[in-house]
Each structure stands twice: as structure tokens, then as C-alpha cells.
Simulated scan of single mutants.
Amino acid sequence: MDHLLPTLIEGATAARDKESARLQQLVQALRQSEATLARLREFRVECLARSAAGSLGRADAVSLQTYQGFMARLDQALLLQGHDLERKRQAVTLQQQRLAASQQKLLAFQTLVRRRAAVHALKESRRAQRECDEFAARALARATGP
């Protein structure tokens, strides 16, 4: 198993890096979607302000109907953009969970490596102590002699 751990850590690191890059892409798409929604909202406010201050009071029925159709399409675009934004938020949340799971897996492998190294160091320390004790016992036996 010890010989597989470096390979497992390398794979887990690559997977974590891939999940992190995907999260960055999703966050960027989310920010773009937020900006688009903000621009649409601003445009709607501007259109309403222009209509109130402008020609709608003097408009004929066809112009009024065209304007209302335009505002309905703009409201539909706002609604669709809001749905898109929510889907992207959910995708970011899901990707954050995937990244956390990937990071946790990597940390588990790294912890296993540290534990195995600690066990190996302890065994080596005990072996060295045993050799020292045996050497001291032989030296004492030689010194006290037959």
C-alpha cells in the first residue's frame, strides 16, 4: 500500500486542481450573469423613466402597444436571466461541495502518509534503541568478563 500512496496523492491532487479550476469557471460565469441581470434592470428603469417623461402621454395606440410589448419582452428577459442566475448559483454551490470532497480525499491520503511515516520512525527508533541496549549489554558482559 505504501508504494501506491504517492500515486493516489498525485491523482487526488490533480482531481482537486481540476475541481478548483471548474469552480473558478463557474464563479466567473455567475459574475457575468449577475452583471447581465444588473444591466437589464438598469435598462428597464431607464426605459420606464424615459416613457414617463417622454412621449407616452402623447403616443397613439399603436406606439403604446409597441412599447407595452417591448416592456413585456424586457420583463421576460429579466425573468429568464434571473432563472439563469439561480441555476449558476446552484452550480457554484454544487461545485464548492465537490471541491471540498476532493480536498478532503487529498487530505486523507496525506494524513495516511504522515501516520505511516510516524509509525516507521517509531519502529526505527525502537530498533536503534534495541541495538544500543544490546551493544551496551555486550560491552558490560565483556567488561565484567569471565
Score class of each variant (00 low, 15 high):
Pro146Gly: 05
Ala139Ser: 07
Leu8Tyr: 04
Ala117Lys: 02
Arg44Ile: 15
Ala128Lys: 11
Arg130Asp: 08
Ser51Arg: 00
Gly54Asn: 01
Arg87Cys: 15
Ala52His: 13
Ala49Val: 13
Leu94Asp: 12
Thr144Ala: 04
Ala15Ser: 08
Gln25Leu: 11
Arg16Leu: 08
Ala118Arg: 04
Leu4Ile: 06
Gln65Arg: 09
Leu40Ala: 02
Leu64His: 12
Ser102Glu: 03
Cys47Ile: 14
Gln103Ser: 10
Ala53Glu: 05
Ala139Gly: 04
Gln81Phe: 09
Ala143Gln: 02
Arg142Val: 14
Leu64Trp: 14
Met71Gln: 06
Leu4Gln: 09
Gly57Glu: 02
Arg142Cys: 15
Arg127Phe: 09
Gln68Trp: 01
Gln81Trp: 08
Cys47Tyr: 03
Glu124Ala: 10
Ala15Gln: 05
Ala38Asp: 07
Glu10Thr: 14
Glu134Phe: 05
Val119Gly: 04
Leu140Trp: 07
Phe109Val: 01
Leu48Asn: 14
Thr93Trp: 15
Leu140Glu: 15
Arg138Lys: 08
Met1Ser: 14
Thr93Ile: 12
Arg16Thr: 09
Ala136Val: 12
Leu106His: 00
Ala14Gln: 06
Cys132Val: 11
Ala12Gly: 04
Asp133Ile: 14
His3Ile: 14
Leu99Ile: 04
Ala136His: 05
Leu112Ala: 13
Ala101Gln: 04
Gln104Ala: 13
Thr66His: 12
Phe70Gly: 00
Leu85Pro: 01
Gln90Cys: 08
Cys47Ser: 11
Gly145Glu: 06
Gly69Gln: 02
Phe43Trp: 09
Gln104Trp: 10
Asp133Phe: 06
Ala108Tyr: 01
Pro6Asp: 08
Leu56His: 03
Arg114Trp: 04
Ala38Arg: 05
Val62Leu: 07
Arg115Thr: 05
Glu124Thr: 06
Ala137Cys: 11
Arg130Leu: 14
Leu56Gly: 04
Ala100Glu: 09
Val45Asp: 10
Leu5Lys: 00
Arg22Asn: 12
Ser55Cys: 12
Glu86Gln: 07
Gln104Leu: 13
Arg39Thr: 07
Arg73Val: 10
Leu78Glu: 08
Ser125Lys: 01
Gln24Gly: 10
Cys132Gln: 07
Leu23Cys: 06
Leu80Gly: 10
Thr111Trp: 01
Asp84Gly: 13
Ala61Val: 13
Glu124Phe: 01
Gln104Lys: 10
Gln103Trp: 03
Gln96Trp: 03
Leu26Glu: 04
Gln104Asp: 11
Leu79Asp: 14
Gln110Tyr: 02
Val119Ser: 12
Leu78Thr: 07
Thr111Asp: 10
Val27Asp: 03
Leu106Ser: 01
Ala91His: 00
Ala137Tyr: 01
Ala38Glu: 07
Thr36Leu: 12
Arg127Ser: 15
Tyr67Leu: 03
Glu46Asn: 07
Val92Trp: 03
Ala137Thr: 15
Gln32Tyr: 12
Arg89Val: 00
Gln25Asn: 11
Ala72Cys: 03
Leu4His: 07
Leu85Ser: 06
Gln76Met: 08
Asp133Asn: 10
Val62Lys: 04
Glu19Asp: 15
Gln110Trp: 00
Arg116Trp: 00
Ala72Ser: 05
Lys88Asn: 05
Thr36Tyr: 05
Gly82Arg: 01
Glu10His: 08
Asp133Pro: 05
Ser51Gly: 03
Lys18Ile: 15
Asp2Pro: 01
Ala91Cys: 06
Gln103Cys: 10
Pro6Ser: 07
Arg41Asn: 15
Glu131Trp: 00
Ser51Leu: 02
